[in-house]
Design a protein around this nucleic acid. Sequence first.
RNA 1: GAUAGGAUGGCUGAGUGGUCUAAAGCAGCAGACUGCAAAUCUGUUAUUCAGGAGUUCGAAUCUCCUUCCUGUCUCCA
Length: 491
Amino acid sequence: MSSRLHIYNTISKQTEEFQPIDPPFVGMYLCGPTVYGDPHLGHSRGAVMMDILFRYLMHLEYKVRYVRNITDVGHLLNDADEGEDKIGKIAKANKVEPMEVAQQYTNAYHQALQKMNILPPSIEPIASGHIIEQIEMIEEILANGFAYESNGSVYFDVLKYAETNDYGALSGRKLEDLIAGAGEERRALEGQEEKKNPNDFALWKKATPEHIMKWNSPWSVGFPGWHIECSAMSGKYLGKQFDIHAGGMDLLFPHHESEIAQSTACNHTNPAKYWMHNNMITINGQKMAKSLNNGVLIEELFSGNHHLLEQAYSPMTLRFFLLQAHYRSTLDFSNEALQAAEKGFQRLMNAAGKTDSLTTANSSDMDIQSWVDKLYEQVNNDLATPQVIATLFEAAKWINEIDAKKLKISHTDKDLLHTTYHTFVFSILGLVAEEAENNEALDGVMQMVLDIRKTAKENKDWTTADKIRDGLKEAGIEVMDGKEGSNYKLS
RNA sequence: GAUAGGAUGGCUGAGUGGUCUAAAGCAGCAGACUGCAAAUCUGUUAUUCAGGAGUUCGAAUCUCCUUCCUGUCUCCA
């Protein structure tokens, strides 16, 4: 491999060569979900992007520690109903324990990602399990003079911080603009009057009496602010400075900007060397939003049970679909696009099944080594998975043509093609073949039905043969005729 | 209003100064296979990159203007 891994760093707005702080170790952190609802399509994108990076870094033989958190506390509600913890609100409504709600949605998140063959992270810390670490960090920030206590709550002093640091460096915001825009269309959040400045954000919030998720602290019985958990947990498991911090673009401001400020105020350093952000998805060209009634849960995509979906799409179809677009581009979901991905994925996998059994010759009609180099160049170029897939399709075509005896390949090249194709498809892109679930009873029935049809075909009784074929199709079973007899699949 | 990212064929989407008369997948069309289909395989399909002006020997790629889309501005992947 001649090229080296480069990734786009949001901080520098440039694609930079990836150089770990302390090779061969790599620490990476992804802002995980807030577990107050079932995972939707948006959640799948960042998880897949980081999964590719995780897999590829391991392929490059780095020793990777991948931390992806679960947020189960601390997010204030924005609705008129006061600042109450989201998890706590749902819990009270359903008369269950907050931890039960968090667990339910954490399980749902895990299940969805597992179906998509996303590797579990090395560590998955939970915010409510790190209250002490968060309190300690807040104390340090207070001691360093970058925060103040107000009525039992603690706020980060953005103006004070900005005197010696660049608040807005990551998101391209200027503090003057933030302050200027502060007056008019700001939402009415409770506790604003406690702040010195509207841009200050909470490190610790004093809980109202009806608030059920709360902890003791030096300042009040309350709960931590939104941003501090990621800073505390990434610091605990990856160190004061680690390699990669990732998340959706929507987290750029204020979440990541504030993380940088907190960590800098506490540890005097930007926590991460590389900041990566995946772009958003749209549905039929529109943003996904509750108000537009077009939000799609990952499970709804898998079941097809949604008014915008014409059919169910498999987990691998979703994974392949996401990888066909670059992670920094917006990606539009539509039935047409998903159906295209489904077919394309099948094609890629069909070829994968043939690589090992190709007939070899004395020489090759194609240059396999430069094809291999191209794949590495592309994945090294900021994880250009769409290009990697295109290059794999190039090989899929060769594989089919070799299979049809239109091209020839040497034994050495065949081995290289086989190994590389499989490495990229399975190990790096993380795709897996989706076998239709085996059902012995159905197999038995189908065996018999196809046998009857075979007899009909032998007797040139096309009416019966076609009746069986059409009837099965109606029932969701597709008959596939081949040279060596007929087969079927569930459609 | 501020700020970040976009607009490429019927669809999804690569490509960021010359090898671009624009990758790949899907759909369409033609062929192979088939009793006919489906599936599979092969071939083919954008003189053009939102619109306009400019820089350059050369622009999808750089600059400016216009239009539209998406994220964010203290809940969001």
